[in-house]
Design a protein around this nucleic acid. Structure first.
Length: 416
RNA sequence: GGACAGCUGGCCGAGUGGUCGAAGGCGCUCGCCUGGAACGCGAGUAUAGGGCAACCUAUCUAGGGUUCGAAUCCCUAGCUGUCCA
């Protein structure tokens, strides 16, 4: 959530930043007014409540001393009506404010380039050069089917479209990748955690998926539980509502989970193959830091993900997301795109974001800075999306006859 | 699925309608003591919001109710434990 106090103190500044994310100044003005009117309502309530409390105390004294209470009772009853009204007003304003505030995205950092969509993202650097093929490289679904690694039809039979089944070496490679990535991250100082795949509404509000993006989440029938769209949700929320000590920070965690997305609004995109599935495997990095160290952590996380691809000998590039492509909660994001020779383009395989205080404010994750409690910074990033990594291996390591070379670093994981 | 018990501050634990934001202990912080430490002694030690100082408001799992007044009584939900199926 954005800082409403800051909005009030520096309306122009906040407004300028959020305008770049397409938030209208009119909405922010409304937000500011609602915040102010809530403050007034709170004050009114508190004044009345203070009077009520004082009279109630007096009441006790009267009783003990055996005095007549009828006059006091009349006063206290009259005041109570006002208190009840004030509570109602306050509640209404609180709800109105939250409804708007929770749907406002994070402020982008100044380093985020302006832009409409992924076309306007800025390439930061390329790592490894795509190799030349002496033949026309195939796309991954063709290779996957030819090698018997992935069965798209049977996935549809079991569930619905955008589900697939891995067989044999395809399935083993997925598992090898997961283990390799987790081990790699652990060696970089990220503690492995294993978390629930179902989370409640509060957790999703904490990280920003709710209330705005409910349409893209799978919800349990009749229960306030949702399948996680990313491990970022359970892992970040591990410390929701907590006050960490300074020496506990930074928290660095890595988790493997399945991720579930309805992909609402992605109709027609990547319908073939396993680029965009309703269920996919992902290894995630999450960090919780002090505000002054979050950028160092960010760089470490980007390196971690990039180095995994390098270890797998997969050419990739880093891109700085523009305002139009930036996610709801991110202050800035670096995407890692892997080269897919079959598609002849770079495709997203990892997304690393610093949300700064945005999630911390929603999830109430704080730390003790001396005497004061301050909000932490939270960061998250994929390292990596497993299915897409498998896709990249297939397309980059294919031979003319359709066979696929297994990357050196994965061989120990496959008993090779 | 059924029955019962419980959920209090970082932890343990007292508190059955007003003087309770909450005894006591542990832990932690600071000071004294010491060559140094333990022991001992003294002081402090929740969070949020508002005034931005005194102070005020809220919070004893959550939500609702009774009452002038609720940690304390009632209802609902969640969680934990025990027993039964």
């Amino acid at each position: 959530m954005i800082d409403l106090k800051l909005l009030q103190k520096d309306f122009e500044g906040v407004s300028a930043k959020l305008t770049r994310k397409g938030v209208s100044a009119a909405l922010l003005t409304t937000l500011k007014e609602k915040f102010e009117s809530l403050r007034v309502a709170k004050q009114e309530f508190e004044t009345l409540q203070a009077a009520q409390n004082a009279m109630s105390k007096e009441f006790g004294v009267y009783k003990r001393e055996g005095k007549d209470i009828s006059e006091l009772k009349a006063r206290v009853d009259a005041n109570k009506i006002k208190v009840t009204e004030a509570v109602e007003v306050q509640r209404e304003r609180q709800e109105e404010l939250e409804k708007i505030a929770m749907a406002v995205p994070n402020m982008p950092d100044d380093s985020v380039p302006d832009g409409k969509d992924e076309e306007d993202n800025i390439e930061l650097k390329k790592v490894l050069t795509p190799k030349e093929f002496g033949f026309t490289p195939k796309e991954h679904w063709e290779l996957a089917e030819q090698n018997g690694w992935i069965d798209f039809e049977r996935g549809v039979k079991l569930a619905t479209s955008r589900f697939s089944v891995s067989f044999g070496m395809g399935a083993r490679l997925e598992r090898a990748l997961i283990n390799f990535m987790l081990d790699f991250n652990r060696e970089r100082g990220f503690e492995e955690v294993s978390v629930p795949a179902l989370v409640n509404r509060q957790a999703l509000e904490g990280t920003g998926q709710l209330p705005k993006f409910e349409d893209d989440l799978y919800k349990m029938d009749g229960q306030e539980l949702f399948l996680i769209p990313t491990a970022e949700v359970p892992v970040t929320n591990l410390y929701a509502d907590e006050i960490l000590t300074a020496d506990e920070l930074p928290k660095r965690m890595t988790a493997y989970t399945s991720c579930f997305r309805k992909e609402a609004g992605a109709a027609g995109r990547d319908t073939r193959g396993m680029i965009r599935q309703h269920q996919f495997h992902k290894v995630e990095l999450v960090a919780i830091t002090t505000p002054d160290t979050s950028e160092i952590m960010f760089e470490q996380m980007v390196s971690c993900a990039s180095d995994i691809l390098t270890a797998l000998e997969l050419p990739h590039r880093l891109v700085n997301l523009c305002t139009g492509d930036l996610g709801f909660g991110a202050a800035h994001t670096t995407d890692i795109e892997v080269w897919l020779p079959g598609q002849n383009q770079y495709r997203e395989i990892s997304s690393i974001s610093n949300t700064r205080e945005f999630q911390a404010r929603r999830a109430k994750i704080r730390y003790k800075n001396g005497k004061k409690n301050e909000l932490v910074n939270t960061l998250n990033g994929s390292s990596l999306a497993v299915g897409r990594t498998l896709v990249a291996i297939m397309e980059n390591n294919q031979n003319e006859d359709g066979t696929i070379d297994i990357p050196e670093v994965l061989r120990p994981y496959l008993g090779m």
